[in-house]
Amino acid sequence: MRALVAIAQHGSIRAAAKTVCLSQPALTKAIREFEQELGVPLVTRSARGAQLTQYGHAVYARAKLIPAEMQHAKDDVVLLSVQEGFLTAALARLGDGSLDFVIAIVDEKKLAPEFMFRSLLEGELIISARKGHPLANAQSIADLEGADWMLNTTPESIGQSLQDFFVQHGATAPRVVVECSSFSASFSLSVNSNLLSCCPKSFLETDWIRERIVSVPVREALPRVSVGIISRRDALNTSACDYLIDCFVEAVASAPVFQFDTVRADVL
Rank of each mutant, 00 (worst) to 15 (best):
N152P: 00
E114L: 11
I229S: 00
A147F: 04
S202C: 08
S128A: 14
R212Y: 01
V82N: 01
G170L: 08
F183P: 06
E37Y: 10
R175F: 02
Q54R: 09
S46F: 00
A171G: 05
M70E: 15
V40Y: 06
Y60V: 02
V102E: 00
S193M: 06
A185E: 12
S140P: 00
A129R: 09
L204W: 12
S23P: 14
S215H: 09
F117D: 04
R45S: 13
A171R: 07
G39P: 13
G49L: 13
M150K: 05
H169E: 02
I66S: 07
A112W: 00
N237T: 01
A112K: 03
V167R: 11
I209V: 15
H169F: 01
A63F: 03
F258L: 15
H133S: 03
L27D: 01
D100Q: 00
I66W: 07
G49R: 10
R224F: 10
A90S: 13
G97K: 14
P113G: 02
D266A: 07
V176I: 06
R62G: 12
A90Y: 05
S193K: 10
G49Y: 05
E37P: 02
R32P: 07
G159P: 01
S184I: 12
A173M: 08
D148S: 15
R14W: 04
A173T: 11
V257Y: 01
S128D: 10
S119N: 10
F258C: 12
L189W: 13
L121N: 08
R2Y: 10
I13K: 05
A138L: 07
D164F: 01
R2A: 05
L87D: 00
Q9T: 07
D234S: 14
G97V: 03
H72D: 11
A26Q: 12
L52I: 05
L204G: 06
A8Y: 05
I229K: 06
V267Q: 15
G228T: 04
G123M: 13
K18E: 12
S161W: 07
L189I: 06
A90V: 03
V227E: 11
L27S: 01
C21T: 02
S202L: 03
Q54M: 08
V59Y: 09
P200F: 05
E220S: 11
V77S: 11
K74C: 01
S190I: 08
Y60G: 01
A47L: 13
V257A: 10
S188C: 00
F260V: 08
V40I: 13
A15H: 02
D234C: 13
R232C: 01
S197M: 15
K74I: 08
L38H: 04
T206N: 12
D148K: 14
G123W: 11
D234F: 04
V43F: 08
L120I: 03
R48W: 04
D242E: 15
G123P: 08
L111Q: 10
G146F: 09
T153Q: 13
K64F: 02
T53W: 10
